[in-house]
Write a protein that binds this DNA or RNA. Structure first.
Lengths: 152, 152
DNA sequence: TATTGTTATACTCTATAACTATA
DNA sequence: TATAGTTATAGAGTATAACAATA
């Protein structure tokens, strides 16, 4: 459980913080991440693991380097992540004959099943938070966040 | 340096990820946090330390428990943070006669000076990223993020 | 009994550097 | 020589549990 800022007690002067994008982002990101992690607990997967499965589902045979580039995860950090997915037989590494340095990554049937369950949790989570916004607010937000993340 | 997702190579299918709030938040938050941390490097402070100084500046004598509640930091995690600020004489703990369990926290002149420098860095950072949005985009974004972070 | 601050500890995500085996 | 994956390690931020001093 995260400790959330006390937004009610106007007694405390937060200065410029409420006008800072990074502060607002940190707060919102933390709330969402906490909720999503809790929502995924029944499935036993963390958000990042689900993200990897999502990409694997749409791109069978992808190399680790490619997944890392797509999701913004460094090769060194991707290794233990894939290790665990493989240990739980949710994904597997297969040798690539053409390049024996690289691995082709594949989601397994068990991985697809887990991913489907995770998707349901995530969808519910998304609906839950979209409800906090006005109609069209989610699209607006995704647009704004995309602009921030991309130099454009 | 963070590895950012490859948004250009449309070769890879990211599935539902681009439509997920938590994923968009994670990406944007990471970009902003990285940039801000780098921007604050000359001052030698991390964003969270500056946040504490900001609150201290507007609320001299605040207790640790109150700062923690305001910023969403647990008491146990606040201790080393304050320790370092105190070690660098940017803030100080003073005993509270009325309650000898608690500390009153105060920003020092050196702390105010450091905070002023940090503010300039943060303002520049904010301008830099607000420029990625349309006019009024920042206010829109702050509004949406506030709604997400707050249940109501 | 409850609260304030503290210690100790663990987990997640991110980061760098250096290694191996291939290419 | 460059690349793919790996190992080892470190730093932030966040989390819990348990304790001492005080209320």
């Amino acid at each position: 459980m995260t400790i959330m800022p006390d937004t009610r007690s106007a007694a405390i002067d937060l200065g410029d913080l409420p006008r800072q994008l990074d502060y607002a982002l940190r707060r919102a990101q933390l709330v969402l991440a906490q909720d999503l992690s809790a929502a995924l607990e029944p499935v036993g997967l963390r958000p990042l693991q689900v993200a990897v499965l999502s990409v694997l589902r749409g791109n069978p045979g992808l190399r680790q380097s490619e997944i890392g580039a797509a999701l913004g995860i460094r090769p060194a950090n991707l290794v233990p992540l894939i290790d665990e997915l493989e240990r739980r037989t949710l994904a597997e590494r297969r040798p690539i004959p053409a390049d024996r340095r690289a691995n082709g990554l594949f989601i397994t049937p068990a991985g697809s099943a887990a991913h489907a369950k995770a998707r349901a949790c995530i969808d519910a989570h998304e609906v839950r938070f979209a409800a906090r916004l006005r109609a069209g607010g989610k699209d607006q937000l995704l647009n704004l966040l995309g602009r921030l993340a991309n130099p454009a």
